[in-house]
Design a protein around this nucleic acid. Sequence first.
DNA 1: CCTTGACTCTCCCCTTGGGGGACGCTTTAC
DNA 2: GTAAAGCGTCCCCCAAGGGGAGAGTCAAGG
Lengths: 264, 264
Amino acid sequence: MMLKIGEFSKLSMLTVKTLRYYEKEGLLIPAAVDRQTGYRLYETAQLEDAARIKALRQLHFSVEEIRAHLSGTPIREALLAKEEELKEKQSDISVMLSVIRFLSEEKEMKYQAVLKELPACIVYSEERVLKNYGEVTQLVLESAQECLRLNPGLECTKPDYCFCEYLDGEHKETDIRARYSQAVVRAGKENERIRFRSLPAGKALCIYHKGAYELLGEAYAYIVNYAQKNGYEIAGVPRECYIDGIWNKESVQDWLTEIQLPVK
Amino acid sequence: MMLKIGEFSKLSMLTVKTLRYYEKEGLLIPAAVDRQTGYRLYETAQLEDAARIKALRQLHFSVEEIRAHLSGTPIREALLAKEEELKEKQSDISVMLSVIRFLSEEKEMKYQAVLKELPACIVYSEERVLKNYGEVTQLVLESAQECLRLNPGLECTKPDYCFCEYLDGEHKETDIRARYSQAVVRAGKENERIRFRSLPAGKALCIYHKGAYELLGEAYAYIVNYAQKNGYEIAGVPRECYIDGIWNKESVQDWLTEIQLPVK
DNA sequence: CCTTGACTCTCCCCTTGGGGGACGCTTTAC
DNA sequence: GTAAAGCGTCCCCCAAGGGGAGAGTCAAGG
């Protein structure tokens, strides 16, 4: 009692296309092929094999994994690995759902938070206590001067990557501990002001802020809130990265700054 | 200050390939193209667009959905739809994880439970109270005889689909209410024994049982346990479908029966 | 005997979101 | 001057089949 592919398809609930594909992939070879017509002929006993394959596919095992299993590889470890994989997928989806619900509650969607993988880099840094935020400009300029004086010909990365961090745990309007950093291609000489650091690669939640620096507070508040509400673990102080500013854009509206909040 | 694709790639954390692909798909068109060299030139302001796209991609929006959003389609409904989609995915994964843990606890993996979509069909049925399970054979044979006597030339489906259901809520060894059904291409005349029914399409958990009918109880126990442990809602009594049996296989070991448990 | 419709065969192109690589032209650095 | 990146286009590749073309096969009806 041999079954033609259409009949076997109905019994196994696999499409004809799928059965032909599984034959090509070596998962389920028809018991016989009619010499004359080339018709595939299946036995009812093969329904069991079809069910096994279908069961594994329903658990999102790939054709290759199933082939390995059918060739005798035990399935225990495959099950464990698949469990890990699915758990990871599930937690990814949890984050996405959380983000979607977070976004749904917003009115204007001013910011687009993005998870970026920051590459490792080498920076020089200068740390200073500022009287007010206006002094950041001085810090930036004087750090660059001092570093170049100390290391003539030192090259910055291209494109530029430079940022400020505010090292106080809280927001302050005066006596602000700030650190300016700029990425360079290799380390150089240090002194009591300039230090070189190797920043490790890592993930960061990033948003862009467009416009004057006075409004940056909003962006900071947003990204920290975003991280907390969506289950990210904050792994450092935010970096305030200067992209467009007074040095290349006339209009304050065109200034562009990125806030990068390191997370795990 | 225009950026070449490589620089823009580093700032946006999108690969060069991806940027070229997004241009082709109309998501992110470079602000300018050098007439001489064909080099793409991006503006820093486009980093915002890149971030928006990247954010949506991280929420698993497709390129087409993002394109719709960028062309002005509001994103609210898209967010809601995506939330539903992700919730569904998550519950699918929950079931898979449950099944994997269920399987991991087993020793021999004798059965492969598969979720099948059963198509709608028309059957004739006869119901009867049996003294014992051995009388099933009589029920099958006599129902077929009676139905054909009543409806000469009535066609059964190809391939055959026939099954028994045991209608008592509990397991019994005597006075068993059983119903035999066989799929036909269209309904016919009825009498006090033979009734025609239209079975709706629906999902069912299915396993194959190989061998003598005495051991079918094990398969029943397995499939019901499987359904309960993995969160399926049972939607009817199991169907015992006869595929191979005494009518076409000599050896009892080759008899093949499928148990189909309707679920939602 | 012919036809018609339902199956089946093989072969080829299509899907998503890019990745890899070949080959040729520019730009940049030493 | 030259070598190494960087950039351009063009083509093929992935997973798991789906869709369809063109041709052969089978069973039933007229």
